[in-house]
């Protein structure tokens, strides 16, 4: 298995479990949607996977690298996990090029430029390379946030409520685009949502989370067939 999560437990305060014994496995290139109402622990699960929160117990292995176990804990900045935040978190003082290049500082300058260009082509936003985030629409900001998260070639992509800031018409369009881009890059992805339509349209598998526990799981065969 490409992603292996075993018996994860987490609580912000003692004796109050937000994530309760969650286990999950994923194949490489699979898209999993975590569906749940607010307060179900779905965003917390993403924060644990990304390394922004440390679980009380459990194990996380991605691409044969143990990120978290009893004696192991790899910090967020060393995990190679890409994340698209609910509010996109594009740095407002940097233009599109600098935002995307932010995670590429280990590459030589020429490679960095090429990778930024490649990412902009992927999300069809080449002409916005010099724009600042406030000069972009909500949908464009989301695409840049996606390009920024994918640029350092992360081992997994996490998306936190990626459509919650978009109006209905735009959401339908962006949903298809997002699915296409993720499939094109063959990126293993987990996204959390409270909207069944989002999960139904994009995910290969939907996992239902309630009070920090996985209560159900559905395989979306139509999406899996589409990509095969």
């Amino acid at each position: 298995m490409y992603v292996k999560i075993e018996s994860l437990q987490f609580g912000y305060v003692k004796d109050e479990q937000v994530i309760n014994d969650v286990s999950l496995s994923m194949k490489e290139g699979e898209i999993v949607a975590i569906l749940g109402s607010s307060g179900s622990g779905k965003s917390t699960l993403l924060r644990i996977l990304s390394g922004l929160e440390m679980p009380n117990k459990g194990e996380i292995v991605i691409n044969e690298e143990t990120l978290c176990a009893t004696q192991v804990y790899i910090e967020a900045e060393k995990r190679e996990v890409g994340m698209v935040f609910q509010d996109y978190a594009l740095f407002p003082h940097m233009n599109v090029e600098k935002n995307i290049a932010f995670g590429l500082s280990r590459l030589p300058k020429s490679c960095r430029k090429a990778r930024v260009k490649e990412m902009l082509e992927l999300v069809s936003m080449e002409e916005k390379i010099d724009a600042y985030p406030h000069e972009l629409s909500g949908g464009q900001q989301q695409r840049i946030a996606l390009a920024r998260a994918l640029a350092p070639k992360p081992s997994i992509l996490l998306l936190d409520e990626p459509f919650s800031n978009l109006d209905t018409d735009l959401k339908l369009k962006i949903r298809q685009e997002l699915k296409m881009i993720i499939k094109k890059t063959h990126m293993t992805s987990i996204f959390v949502t409270h909207d069944y339509e989002d999960a139904h349209d994009i995910a290969d598998r939907i996992i239902y989370l309630e009070n920090g526990r996985i209560v159900d799981e559905i395989v979306m065969e139509h999406n899996q067939q589409n990509t095969q």
């Binding site: 910090e75 967020a76 994340m83 978190a89 740095f91």
Partner: peptide, 12 residues
């Protein structure tokens, strides 16, 4: 989220 985002992009 700005700080978390920067950390996830590998920034020290």
């Amino acid at each position: 989220s700005f700080i978390e985002s920067a950390r996830l992009l590998g920034a020290s």
